[in-house]
């Protein structure tokens, strides 16, 4: 009690009756009366009973814990850090990233999220503004030319399949959205093989080579620039 002198002297109870204890509290008659108006109606400080826990809970919680154990056993992938599939079982192999990589699937998703707004879901484009991708020689033709368009964008008039278009395509290279070689590989391969196009895929190596070749260029291409380097086939 040496470290807790707070109540010790001030409130030491008198040996006799209850009232004199209260008299010794640090209040005058008036405030005691006022406070007791408040506290007189207040019930005692809370206490706890000691009823037994209902036995049925034991079974319920036992069942829960059992389920939890089974669930962990079936969906923890042996606690490997590199497994993301909850239904993975030993023997499935671990290198999911290599097995799951499909440029068409990835390209499909990239296209829907980035390209379809302008070039439209079926690659048909919008007359006068956004050129079509279906059957376009810029898509199914020179690999380098297509990769260059992706990496720097394209602005100004362009003639596609006999129709004039005038719009802007953003860059997906270092000066734009900054896609890596793999994503460029996926999107170019996808557009060359979707919408009825049947051109061969463009590899990551090709993308990396073209990226190196145009490293010094920082603006969007014009159609003339592209055609002087890579004439239409």
């Amino acid at each position: 009690m040496a470290d807790n002198p707070h109540h010790s002297d001030k409130h030491r109870p008198a040996p006799s009756d209850h009232l004199s204890e209260i008299d010794r509290a640090a209040y005058g008659d008036d405030s005691i009366h006022r406070i007791h108006q408040q506290l007189g109606r207040e019930k005692e400080e809370p206490t706890e009973g000691f009823s037994q826990i209902p036995i049925v809970l034991l079974f319920l919680f036992g069942a829960l814990v059992f389920w939890g154990g089974i669930y962990i056993a079936n969906h923890s992938a042996e606690f490997r850090y590199d497994i993301y599939d909850p239904d993975w079982k030993p023997g499935f192999g671990g290198d999911q990233t290599a097995a799951a990589w499909d440029p068409i699937k990835k390209g499909d998703r990239l296209f829907k999220n980035n390209c379809a707004a302008c070039h439209q879901a079926e690659g048909q484009g919008v007359p006068g503004v956004f050129p079509p991708l279906a059957g376009s020689p810029y898509v199914v033709g020179s690999e380098d030319r297509l990769v260059k368009i992706l990496l720097r964008g394209l602005s100004g008039p362009i003639d596609v399949l006999g129709t004039e278009y005038n719009g802007n395509m953003p860059s997906y290279g270092e000066n734009g959205l900054g896609w890596d070689d793999r994503d460029i590989h996926a999107i170019t391969t996808y557009v060359r093989q979707a919408f009825g196009n049947e051109a061969p895929p463009i590899t990551e190596e090709t993308v990396a080579r073209v990226r190196g070749e145009i490293a010094s260029k920082s603006t969007a291409w014009s159609a003339d620039e592209l055609l002087s380097a890579h004439p239409l086939e």
Partner: peptide
């Protein structure tokens, strides 16, 4: 994209 055991442990704890 986090290790699946961590998610499974979180699910079990949530149910518990």
């Amino acid at each position: 994209p986090i290790p699946v055991w961590l998610i499974s442990a979180g699910i079990v704890a949530s149910v518990m």
